[in-house]
Amino acid sequence: MVTMLIMSLAMPFFLTPVMAQEATKAATEAAPKVEMAKDVYFKTEGPVSGNPVPELKAADYPSYNLPYPLSENRILIWSIAQQHLYFGSFVLAVPIFCMIIELVGLLTKDPVMAKKYDDLAHLLVKISLTAYSVTAILGGLLLFSFITLYPDFFKYISSLFRPVMHIYALLFLAESGTLYIYYYGWDRMAHGFAKWMHACLGVLLNVFGSVLMMLANSWASFMMSPAGVDEQGRFLGNIWNVLHNALWNPLNVHRIIGNMVFGGGIVAAYAAYKFLAAKNMEEKAYYDWMGYIAMFMAVGSLIPLPFAGYWLMREVYGFRQQMGITLMGGLLAWLFIIQAVLIGALFFSTNYYLFNGMERMRGAEKYQKYIKYILFLTTAAFIVWLTPHTLVMRPAELKAIGGQQHPIIGNFGVMSAKNGAVNTMIMTTIISFLLYQRSNKIITVKWEAWGNAALVAMFAVALVNNWWLAIYGYFIPANVRVGLSVPQVMGTLTTLFVGSAINIAMMKGSKLTGPIEWGKISVRSQYALFALAVSFTWLMALMGYIRSSVRLFWHVMEVFRDTSPWAFTHTIGFAANVMSMNVMAFWLFVLFVFWLGELTSKHAVAEARKEAARPVMAGGSE
């Protein structure tokens, strides 16, 4: 119903490509004097329907007279946009989890577990409600900052994306309406058909949320890879082309998966916070379980994320090779080394958490002896993964080393080796996971030896295939080498899906050595969850900066020049400090939100206790 309403509102704005062509054809026949121009990306002709980009001078950027670096408008926009994106990312990820967990609860046969899942989904929405309003406030702040600090730029962008921006605002109405019905109707729609209706609302909430994000993504991707305009930036009458620019879809995919890792990390951090603050074993057990589920979701999304990132980078190279080189082998290359360290931190903290999680189960001892080998492989891969390749050198250093690349060391730190390394890290994490799942079970299927042999053989083949391709990549030209990532990925994904399937089949009918003792886990493991969440926050700040700064002195790549006094690229050290400040600010904010949640729940618990302690009147109806 709401969808139909939105669709009917949106239809006049979003002509489908065929209708748009007919409309432009009709327009050209009626008025032959319309000037035609060529689309910078699609290379099609279209009627000029907008103004060219303005020619700006340094004085056209009104800034506050604040001490440096706050005198630079971009620092203000950067920080506000970063905070808005953090919270926005969180409120988009939580409904995805709710949708999945609620469905799992609906499909679970055991009524106790079904209720447990359903309550968890309900709790997650409650956590996100505060974050939802914070996101909206930060969005308002960002909008006012754009209007006041970059008036000419914003005028241009909003004239181009006029219908998109209106639909964006209308979708907010639809999303918040759905969210409130979803949250406040939870108990009323708890049974039978109404419960399925409620689950449908969860799907609808995600449709609105995803479309919102995709519309906002189109503004950022347009700035990187413009389409639908001519060389002077004049709109060519087809908003569909502006929306479907070259990097829109890769960015959509990468951000949806990234949101899920980020949201899972925040929920895991919330659970860790509650675990550490828990007063009794029952609470500990609950929050330990919640932290595990959140971590499971985060890591489940973390495994495909590098592949989506690789695709995004391939598309960047495909759009403008120079942009790709600036990112990976030029001005911003060392930021990618920092990225490698942070990704390594994610995989280490995940493995550490899983190793610690084995303590919940009796019978895990037989697998703990493998931890040191898994750790060794992961560490070796991590070292290859973070080796730098492009050095920034003075002429004297260049001479001493014998050119831009040292004859021997110059072979290290190239993408071929790193692809092999990251696939190794993903596979060792999968092995940790398979062992963790088996920890409290004694396998009883007859083909146990064959099953284990198949698993070992599959991982061995995948790892050797992966390392061989990483070495082979050194001997072939770059354009062929890029294609090698496909068999490497296929190997890794095979171990993930086939390995999980064999493992699950082997655990059928197995004897339990005891239930999982939730809550019996080291305090250190909870700090690993914090490390996971903070590393990911840092990673988002880092990669967001890289994505924006690759435009160098362009507002809109090769169309709209940035002529502000601060159109230079920051030093890596300065940029890293701004990122870290943003991470700190966000976590202080998040802890405040957690603390707020604590206040309301304490009140509810106190009320319930008072109610329970109330003396019952003799002969009363109660």
Binding site: G192, F193, W196, A199, V207, V211, M214
Partner: peptide, 26 residues
């Protein structure tokens, strides 16, 4: 007919999912 009525919830859910996927196919 009774079978459809009994499973109206899951059927509705699947329809909503299919329509959503069609919508993204945006």
């Amino acid at each position: 007919m009774d079978k459809i009525r009994q499973n109206a919830g899951p059927i509705l859910y699947i329809i909503v999912c299919i329509v959503s996927i069609w919508f993204f196919y945006f």
